[in-house]
Structure formats: C-alpha cells, structure tokens
Nucleic acid binder design. Structure first.
Lengths: 265, 265
DNA sequence: GAGTGGTCTAGACCACGTT
DNA sequence: ACGTGGTCTAGACCACTCA
C-alpha cells in the first residue's frame, strides 16, 4: 500500500517505440531527526542505482513521488535536483526525468567531475630567487596582451611547505596592474593576496595545463631532488576581470609529494 | 531608496572584536525573461566579488535581501545556496552568511573547476598483451573487496589512436561480475561497454589519481618511446552500484601527446 | 488538453547562536 | 528574547512536450 506501481517507459528515442516497463518502488519509512529531502534523495538514489531500470528509463513524476513519499513538491524537487547534480538523472521540462546513461570511458558524458590536488597546502610567499622589471619577450607579451614597450615583472620563487621546497615557480606579471610591486611583498604573501590588498586587483579565473616532465639540474637543485626525477610541469594563466592575463606562470612541482585526483561521477 | 544600507561587521573571530563597516548594495532592476533567482545570484555574486567587503564580513540576512531585491525568501535562498556551492559565501545557522576568504592559490576565489584531458580520443579496444584468470594478490584482493579465493581477470592492453600506441593499461576485474569474459571482447570494445552489453553490469563512478613518472623499458618499448621519457602514471578505481570496485587499473599514458587542462573558476 | 518540470510566493515551525 | 539559517508545506502560474 505504501508502494507505488507505475508504468515506466524507455525514453522515446530515435526509433520512437516505447518499451513499457512496470516498475515498483519499495516502501519508504521516514526516520525522525534527519531531513526529509535527504532521506528522499538517498532512498530514491539507491533504488535507481540498484534497480534494474533500463538506462534512459523515465522515472516517476514529481507528483507521483510526492504521493509515494508523502511529502510536498518542494521536498521532492530538492531531492531530484540533488540527484541531477550528481548525474544520476537528467531532467527535461515537459517530458520528465530520466535515468542517465552510464558514463563512457575517459570522458564522462555531461556529468559531475571534480578535480583536486592532494598534498600539503603551500605556505604563503616563498624564497625569491630573482626579481626584475623588464620588457617582455615576444612570447610573454602575446600571452599578457601587452605591447612590447610595456614593462613586466618577472620573478622566480621557491614555494615551501614547512621549510621544505616543493615547487619552483616562474611568474610574469604586467607592471600596469601593480606598479610598485616588490620582492619583499612576494616573500611573505600569495601573489593573489598582494594584488588584492595592495593594488585592488582581483583575479577572476585561471586555466592550468599539466604535463609530466623531468627535473633538470636547476630544478632538481632547488627542489632538493636528484636530476631526472619525474615532476609535474604546470603552466597557468590567471585572468583579470577585463579578460586579459594578469599572471602567466610556469612551475615545476614535486611529483612525489603531490598528485592529482579526478572524481568521475 | 532601492539601495540597502546596513551594518556589516567583520566576523567575530578569535579576538572577538567586531569591526563595524557600513556597506551599500547597489540598486537592482529585474529583467524580464530571466529567472529571478538567477538574477539575484549573479547580481549579489558580482557585488560581493567586486565590493570592498572584508573577507569574513557578514552579508545581509535573508530577510534583508528579500526586501532589497523585492522577492520571496525561497528565491533569495536559492541564490544564496548557489553562492555557497560556488564557495563565494559560507552559511552558519544562527549566525548568518559570511564572505569566504579567497581560495589560497590553487583554487581561485570562485568555484567551478572543470578539467579535461586534451589529446586525441582513444580507439575502442586495443592490443591485448596478456589475459589471465587467477587468484588476486593480497593488495588487489583488498582493492577489489574480494576474498583471496575468488578469481579475477588480469589483463594488459595497449590503447591506440589510429594504430599509434599512446597508453598501456593493466586491469584487474573480479570474475564474479563477468564470468566468461574473453580477451577477444576486450580487443574490440571498451571494458565499460562489454560489461554493460554482455553482463548487464554498470559502473557508477570512478576515482583516478595522476602522477608523473618515467617510462621504464617495458613501457617505453610498447609505447615506442625512449626509456626514461616522462609519462603520466594513472591509477583508477571504477565503482559498481554496490560500492565495490569493478575495475582497478594502472596505466601509463604518453605525456607528449596528452595533457590535462584544469579550469579554475 | 493533459501532464511535465521550472519558477515563485507566503507562511509556518525548528534548532541554533548571540545578546 | 531575538534573529539567524534550515526545513517543509500548499498553492499558483508558466513554458514546454506529447498525444
């Protein structure tokens, strides 16, 4: 009696033939002390994952779920939104909600992927190896959208974790956005903080490329590695509100301490 | 008149002294045809990002925002939830909502991080170097949540892009989920497709770790590289609906052809 | 035209933290 | 005691899809 029987049909696809399929959701008993929308999310999520529904199958409508769970539409919608964010279902106005097709190799179709670096957080600032104001090379001028007559700051920093060197960064920053930048400021703060607090400049987003590489003698020496140790080589462009690049950075990061984790959902 | 003046104070921190700060939200004119909650999200988000509020400052309460934007609490809450998901604000029951300190490096103040691998897509299947049914090592048994008496399939595959070898994969799969798996099936299809189409088994999500490494002789030979070339070393666990690991995979991927791109938003 | 999901409102009760 | 955010409800209108 607390179970819901309904007809679920395979999504009307290219062929347009609907394979009717009778589906049963198991009974639901709410627990006290835990939010209803959360209970609905986990209960429905588990039933969808464990059930034998065809991928692409249509799931019960919001109204039917309200009746089955005995909750209001707002609560059901919160649960469905959560499942949609997690890539369990897709929702289509006017049609219904559908079980997602499972992800295919490597590229997870339209679903949620998280990416994070695992390892100790970098200390602010770092040891400055070099700091200069100069004219940009043609390559750097292009990346920073500068005329070659405009000056840039170029600096080398060793980033530390509790005195241990873990990364070596070479940065290029237009002088325009931080006219009196000094090495001392960079010794003690993240560039992002210096620009915000001293120069009222804020970065909006960044793109970073990651490749494997070998530590050459210069990098190995400063990161206290033996030469030819595998490292991450990073290239980052950090953007300002106007769309121009505010910092171009090349970095070498120890691969024995840091690793990237990708969550494919 | 359509502006809201209020007192925002620095979050009562360790010291406990609250630095009063008068803050003004600019006027707001709703546009037709675009959802209100979205307008509130972007308007408030921009003002918080561009405003001169101290990080950790308390932002107007839900009620005040309702009055300022002339919308209901549900609409304001949708906007605030979105900003919280994006890491712009933090919410604390009984206290209020607070501007987040900007992400220290690595994560730009904002939210959305997308990642993708750049390079040609892998062909389905690949050249099978070895395929065997055997008892798992203790390490593999643990990863796959198996008793050591349960059998697994272990296979080595070279993944190709138009006949060019680009990755070498070593996979471990419980026999339980695909009792009669054959090397031939893997030669022509993605594992994920074989499991779905032949065995009605579906993966739900995966975690992958990425590290830099050197190609040893075995890897270099099969990827047609000189030994000690830098490569990506990948370790992936792909999960089934019951939460157990359905495939454990170690792989070496050419670093000269592929690179990862991370978008920090 | 009936049903779907998307949006929005107004009101209510609660646990919590601060005063 | 008061204000905060967290939860939940009931009802409404809309654009859209499909039969």
């Amino acid at each position: 009696m607390s179970t819901l029987e309904l007809i679920a049909e395979a999504e009307a696809g290219a062929a347009g033939r609907a394979l009717a399929r009778r589906v049963t959701l198991n009974a639901f008993e709410p627990e006290p002390m835990v939010p209803l929308h959360h209970q609905v999310t986990t209960d429905l999520g588990m039933q969808l994952r464990l059930g034998r529904w065809a991928t692409g199958a249509i799931i019960p409508s919001e109204q039917e779920l309200c009746a089955h769970y005995g909750v209001s539409r707002g609560t059901v919608r919160r649960a469905l939104e959560s499942l949609a964010r997690d890539g369990i279902i897709e929702r289509h106005p006017g049609r219904g909600s559908f079980l997602c097709r499972p992800k295919s190799e490597g590229q997870i179709a339209g679903s949620y992927t998280r990416f994070r670096i695992e390892g100790p957080p970098l200390d602010a600032g770092g040891r400055i190896l070099s700091f200069s104001r100069r004219r940009p090379s043609p390559e750097i001028a292009e990346v920073l959208s500068l005329r070659r007559s405009e000056q840039i700051f170029r600096f080398d920093r060793i980033r530390l974790v509790k005195q241990t060197p873990v990364a070596l960064q070479l940065s290029f920053v237009p002088e325009r956005i931080c006219p009196r930048l000094t090495a001392k400021q960079l010794q003690e703060n993240h560039l992002i903080d210096v620009l915000r607090d001293r120069f009222r400049i804020e970065f909006t987003h960044a793109d970073e490329y990651i490749e494997p590489a070998l530590a050459d003698d210069y990098v190995a020496q400063h990161l206290t590695l033996v030469p030819n140790t595998p490292i991450f080589q990073l290239e980052r462009r950090t953007y300002l509100a106007d769309g121009r690049v505010g910092e171009f950075r090349r970095a070498a990061m120890r691969g024995d301490i840091y690793r990237y984790k990708v969550e494919l959902r």
